[in-house]
Design a protein around this nucleic acid. Sequence first.
DNA 1: TGATATAGTTCGCGGCTCGAATTAAAGCTG
DNA 2: CAGCTTTAATTCGAGCCGCGAACTATATCA
Lengths: 401, 401
Amino acid sequence: MRKIDLTNFQVATSETARDINRRIMLNLIRRHQPISRADLARYSGLQRSTVSVIVDQLIKEKWVTEGASGHAPRGRKPRFLYLNRDRVGIIGINVRPAMTTIALADLDANFMAQESFSTASNPEQFIADLRTRLRNLIDTHPGIAYEGIGVSLPGRIDLASQRLVFAPNLGWRDVDLKTPLEEATGLPVELENAANACALAELWFGREGVRNLIAVTVSEGIGSGVILGGQLVRGSNGLAGEFGHITIVEEGIECRCGNRGCWEVYASNSAAVRYYVQATTSARSRMESRTPEASLSFDDILRLADQGDPKANEAIASMAHYLGVGIALLITGLAPDVIVLVGEVTRFWGRIGPIIEQIVRRRNVTGAPTRIVPTDPAMQPRLRGTIALVLQKHFGAPEVA
Amino acid sequence: MRKIDLTNFQVATSETARDINRRIMLNLIRRHQPISRADLARYSGLQRSTVSVIVDQLIKEKWVTEGASGHAPRGRKPRFLYLNRDRVGIIGINVRPAMTTIALADLDANFMAQESFSTASNPEQFIADLRTRLRNLIDTHPGIAYEGIGVSLPGRIDLASQRLVFAPNLGWRDVDLKTPLEEATGLPVELENAANACALAELWFGREGVRNLIAVTVSEGIGSGVILGGQLVRGSNGLAGEFGHITIVEEGIECRCGNRGCWEVYASNSAAVRYYVQATTSARSRMESRTPEASLSFDDILRLADQGDPKANEAIASMAHYLGVGIALLITGLAPDVIVLVGEVTRFWGRIGPIIEQIVRRRNVTGAPTRIVPTDPAMQPRLRGTIALVLQKHFGAPEVA
DNA sequence: TGATATAGTTCGCGGCTCGAATTAAAGCTG
DNA sequence: CAGCTTTAATTCGAGCCGCGAACTATATCA
């Protein structure tokens, strides 16, 4: 039970009941399609008359279509209802330091068009690039009702102003993406942190019934998106869920955040590279050549490990160990149903997964049955998250009271 | 925005709008009393006519009373409305290993009656004791509309069955408290873990506007109650928010949970006792006398520290250090507005607080402005939490969609 | 005394769900 | 094949609810 927020509440009007029931209908159709009006009434407990009125409205608004009649052992055949997947177009934008992807998706996050381009280092230039590409995408796909644009960003977004506060890997500070994109397209724009987007993707397009989950993105750093009770945890200022910077090692190695021993210093891709370099470089040569890391990428380590390089395998095992340490902590503290891992590590899951599982099992004796799953990069979790971002505006529970 | 749970949703009926607005009115009156109908309309955005109907209903149901007229610079005087504090009685039961307290409170958690008795070691006997005391309490306070009973328990409660799964310090397993108490009194009974109860007490009776907070109870072990977005975090099985058993020290001391290095092994009262004993006992004598801890309590350590005993002070400093380590982690990860500390440590806050603050400040460079506050034991946080437990059923947001 | 301002009530309208009655469309049966 | 049974879907009046304009009540001020 939630406490009502007296600084930001929503009273009920005469249309509130319809809004609530309409969203429930939409979700039931999404989940159970094809489904008849009679079954909708049974699932929901609403009267058949009420269901009919709502469904008629949804059909008129093109959210739902009526398909072929179904079969019934006795009695009149039901008329099957489907979500009108084709009608609704959602644009997703995944901004990453090197590359930005822009895509057009339907309600099930099936991508109908997709293109990538290199992310300009200058935010103004980047926005200009996006503008023309968005225009182009919309123009080449007419006859679609665009419901909105979702954007995944590698940085923190201020909850109130919806501005990008800081994106370390882009070097951008205090950028307003929402306003120019809305002006350029006339569509509502939703911004979200990449880890949060991944969590939303899992919530809306992942396993059915999972309402408590944590997404952990592993790349140069570690990001985390926490969903509890079917809802993204944001905190008052939108800076909750930053588990990448919890202290894992007392008085450990310095982190770019200014602290020491952060999780991401020990379990990110960069950490694996560092482990490898430390293992292969003698103390003396480390003193001489200053930045040996620059020449090695995490992909190189993965490739070396695949080729059987023992030091590369050790580096990855160390990284996996510390991933497990952090994940075990998340499980003990928040007992999610699922933890999804996003990033290059998932390509090596056969060796990384068991190490993580072992640590987690050892540390959760009474143990919540949390599943730890890698995401298939082909599913494009960040991009799918941007679709979820827009989808939830229509399918999410209404903001009431 | 929350995803609708299709396994457990609530459709809207024609009365849903009233339910929502009624709860908003109750909360506005609670927050702003004395307040006129006109002001309620202004605060809520509802029409004055609608407000009048709802207020009439609340007055008829005795939730609200009409008091004296107020003053206005011009125009008709407003008729002030108050929450009818006296009418509603809530019974709170705080079960602790040694002692159980039972109390009668009004809507503001002011206690009108209160009694304590030693907790029977046998659950059946305990329930029988409670039964007679509850009967007695209700009989001696007639003319009160009892809204329900809230119970705080030192253990884990299963979300579905509402049974006490396990209470380590009581030695109870799988006890049903709800059914016998409901049968004995005819009142609805709400059970909650003690740390969660403390968190609820802070949410409902603490600082206004705080919707993200964590309660940390420090006694023999460490418990935690997490409230995010004005809502208790429970997880699928009600076992979320158990931060007492996160690993703080790698390969550390064994915990009674079977794991090693848990937070509560390093930051609980028992930890302080252990630190003191280790510092004052030579290795040899430790071998000889097996359980020197048994003779010392945390209260003793506090007393010794107060008298200036350096080893006692060191023991407490160590405990405070590890409290800070865990709290810093909670702040980094969940960015709550407030962390409340409950337990004997608060009596020594003048020395413990600064140590915690120092660690937290050091580890949160970009830092969320989380306040770390001790609870005054006189406020009886657990007991007040039981009142909040019942209060929120009427004042909380309705379960809809 | 009348103008003005504010609090609170009354009442008809339209939106909503409910639920009984009705219509539609199928299979089964004698 | 006509009538019965069963299930799906619609129709329609009743009742709950919030809206908003009109109205009443009660103050202050010029």
